[in-house]
Structure formats: C-alpha cells, structure tokens
Nucleic acid binder design. Structure first.
Lengths: 106, 106
DNA sequence: AAAACATGCAACTAAAAGGTTGCATGTTTT
DNA sequence: AAAACATGCAACCTTTTAGTTGCATGTTTT
C-alpha cells in the first residue's frame, strides 16, 4: 500500500503555503500561521489539523499558545518516493534504448 | 502562488498507484492502466484525466487505443520543491543553533 | 478580578471529488 | 459487413473537503 496521504496533505494551496511558511521559519504559533491566508482562523485550524494527521507537522502547546513544528522526516520520505519513481522510469528508458539498439544492429 | 496541483494529483491512492505502475513500465494503454484497481474503467479514466490536467502524464492516441506516458519533468519539479523546503528549514535550524551558541558563550 | 488573548469544539453549508451506470463512437479483427 | 475492442461522454449519487459562524475554555496581562 502506497502512502498517498503525504501528497494529499501538500495538495492544497493553503496547506502548502503553511508548510512553505514554516520552512521559511517566519512564524510558528497556530495564530500566526493562520493569518494572512484569506480564510478564518477556524478554517485555517482545520487545515493545520490535516497536516498534523499526515504527520507533516507537530503541535507543541506552550501556555496559552501552541507551536507548530515542521516534521522534515516526512518531507524526506515524500521526496525519496518520487526519486524512486524517477529512477525506475529512467532504468526502463535505458533498457528500452538498449533493446532498440540491439534491434538496429545490422 | 505555489503549485499544489502536482501534489494533489499524487495525493490519491488510485492515482499514485497508476503513477507507480507507469514508472515500473508494466503497461501503458488506458485500458491496462485502468485494470486491477478495484474500480470501473470509467472511474479510472477520470483519475487518469486528473493526472493529465496536472501534467503528470500525457496521452498519445494510437489507432483505437491510447498510450499513457509519464512526464518525469513534473515529478522532478515536485521533488525539487520539497528539497527546497527542507533546505530552507535546515538553514534556519543552523542559524538558530549558531544563535544559541552565541547566547551560551560565557 | 477583569479584560484581553490564544485556542478548542460543534453544527452547518456549499462545492468538489470519487465513483457508478448507460450509451455512443471510432477502429481493428474475423 | 459484423463482431469485438478501446475508448469517450454525460447524468447521476454519495462522501469528503473547505470553509463559515457561534460559543466555550484555559492563560496571560493589567
């Protein structure tokens, strides 16, 4: 079974912007992360929850506010899976090329 | 504006399995790609269309059948964007570490 | 202790996504 | 030319998603 969940989590403009913002490190609390997105705080909160469920992000409560922390491990896995797809594809192309060259031998 | 569409395209088990199958090169026509997924041909066709719209895949009609071709360029872009996120994050961590060391100097 | 702040939770709505069935159409095969 | 095949298109249904509003709760600040 393949892990589509991580891509699903990144596959929304609001969520992807949140992740980008976190990577840039400009902020970290739920409140700050939820602002300037053009949607309500509660709307943003639901998107953060999607990221939490997909393990892209962790929540660390500190007093009355909560820190949102990026989980780069998950991103790494997502990246490596794509790499693997590409590699398989390239190997197949290479095999195909070898075969064609064999055919053309004359 | 960030390109969430590519991740959205990969963010569904059926579509991700299709992409994996294509990368492995086991088949290529719409029909073959649509089989063994547990859904109807027309259902699968709609998922293929999502991949087409996101430019993850190209359709090449040949007579009565249509070849489905993976676009690795798009995958490469997706991979590199994640890499960029990680890099920014790592740099930020590094900066933070330097700062902490500066604070601790005594 | 009151006010301001950061957040959580629940009910609700509109739109999109994922899937189905039925039928039409062009292309090979026999 | 008929049959079999590969595919396309459209209507429809159900569930999920993305967002809203309203109110409750714990935590700082004044």
């Amino acid at each position: 079974m393949i892990e589509a969940q991580i891509y699903k989590a990144l596959g929304d403009p609001v969520r992807l912007e949140m992740v980008a913002k976190l990577a840039k490190g400009s902020s970290c609390t739920i409140g700050e992360l939820s602002s300037n997105l053009g949607i309500s705080r509660q709307g943003a909160r639901k998107q953060i929850q999607v990221l939490v469920s997909a393990n892209v992000v962790r929540l660390v409560p500190q007093g009355r506010e909560t820190q949102v922390v990026l989980n780069t491990e998950k991103l790494k896995v997502a990246k490596m899976f794509i790499s693997k797809l590409e590699t398989e594809w390239d190997q197949r192309l290479h095999a195909l090329k070898s075969f064609a060259e064999g055919q053309n031998r004359n």
